[in-house]
């Protein structure tokens, strides 16, 4: 299949290893990955902070980027539950707010081909064992928007359990929000801190080497807290684990907050 990678703005700048891992994984599975450099952002930050009018040009830019190639690609993949959720749930709302029914329609067409990584793998590419090798212990944080907006359910865990050598450990209170919430983490920083403090403590108590999730933003939050506390677990994206093989194993320094590159 021909898959267009929308890295998300955060990953492009702050966690490029996640996007590289996505490319590695999909190419290893025999698919062609394309990257459209006109891509910027899905507009989630603007939308969720209430700046619909400011989100609109970003959404339009997103639609302008992907709409022309809809016929030549099979899917758009985003390694982020919340960004894929924004495309699916909110782009049309933004268009409606602007009274732009044409954009609303175009956005719907783009959204119909947009998938979060675990959805793409399990639902579209019909694969759960991606042939990965990751001889480490991990604990999985499901991330709110993957769980409740996209409803990816057990897909990521199925993918993880199929990885050779991995040990998946239970994360206490896994379905509680990590406290990121986009601009919430700054606007309500004290509350957000209280939430991520508890999440980090739960990650530590899980006793795994890595905390894994499908959203770099949540991982940046949890990992940032762990790092600040000097705690051992490293944050790593699902794509990075799935990209890792015996031949080209994961390099521990490539975690969200510990890139070597």
């Amino acid at each position: 299949m021909r898959i267009s990678l929308m890295t998300t703005c955060l990953v492009d700048v702050m966690a490029p290893d996640v996007a590289r891992a996505t490319v590695t994984l999909l190419e290893r599975l025999g698919h062609e990955v394309v990257f459209d450099k006109r891509q910027t952002c899905c507009g989630q930050m603007h939308t969720n902070t209430g700046y619909y009018t400011e989100a609109a040009p970003v959404v339009r830019s997103f639609v302008d980027t992907y709409e022309p190639s809809l016929d030549s690609i099979d899917a758009i993949v985003m390694p982020s539950g919340s960004c894929a959720g924004c495309v699916r749930d909110q782009h049309q709302l933004v268009a409606q707010h602007e009274g732009d029914s044409e954009l609303e329609e175009r956005a719907a067409a783009v959204s119909a081909k947009t998938y979060e990584l675990s959805e793409l793998l399990v639902d579209v590419l019909k694969v759960t064992d991606v042939g990965a090798y990751f001889p480490h212990s991990v604990t999985y944080h499901p991330t709110c928007h993957s769980m409740r907006v996209l409803k990816v359910g057990a897909r990521p865990v199925k993918l993880l359990r199929a990885v050779e050598g991995i040990e998946v450990r239970n994360l206490p209170e896994s379905d509680t929000c990590c406290g990121f919430g986009g601009t919430f983490s700054v606007k309500n920083d004290a509350t957000s801190d209280a939430m991520v403090t508890d999440k980090a403590a739960n990650v530590v108590s899980a006793g795994a080497e890595f905390v894994v999730a499908g959203d770099a933003s949540c991982l940046m939050n949890i990992g940032g807290k762990l790092r600040r506390n000097g705690a051992a677990p490293q944050s790593v994206h699902l794509a990075q684990i799935l990209a890792s093989t015996r031949e080209e194993p994961f390099v521990p320094s490539q975690t969200i907050l510990g890139r070597a590159s």
């Binding site: 492009d12 490029p16 700054v186 801190d193 940046m220 807290k225 907050l257 590159s261």
Partner: peptide, 23 residues
Amino acid sequence: PLVPGWTDHRDLPKPGTSFRSWW
């Protein structure tokens, strides 16, 4: 202006080479 709310409580990864540059 907006970053201290974050960095008061957590570390932030330092942007390195962007994905698109690597691509």
